[in-house]
């Protein structure tokens, strides 16, 4: 049982490292048209120097809305789990 686990883990690690080693070369992104548009137009359209901030809050604002919802749910869950129980 132990050896099956170790073998499966080694197969998984070999797969991960092999995929990483045989991917497209580091430093040459594969498709970057959207990012080129963001870098070229973010200063005019969103008015911010920081392109990452303009992507987070302007172009992909719905992602940030969902993220804020997840954070709110996590805080509510922690408050619910750790509530004061009377016994």
């Amino acid at each position: 049982m132990k050896w099956i686990k170790v073998g499966a883990f080694l197969v998984m690690v070999g797969f991960l490292v092999g995929v990483a080693a045989w991917m497209h070369p580091f430093g040459v992104p594969w498709a970057s048209e959207m990012d080129d548009y963001f870098i070229a137009n973010a200063q005019v359209e969103a008015g911010a120097n920081n392109v990452v901030t303009s992507v987070v809050f302007d172009y992909r604002g719905f992602d940030t809305l969902g993220e804020a919802t997840v954070l709110l749910c996590a805080v509510v869950g922690v408050a619910l789990v750790l509530r004061r129980t009377r016994r």
Binding site: G47, A48, S54, D58, T64
Partner: peptide, 13 residues
Amino acid sequence: NTGGTLPLMNWAV
């Protein structure tokens, strides 16, 4: 003084 709603959203978040 730039950025539109981005600084305000930064403060809210």
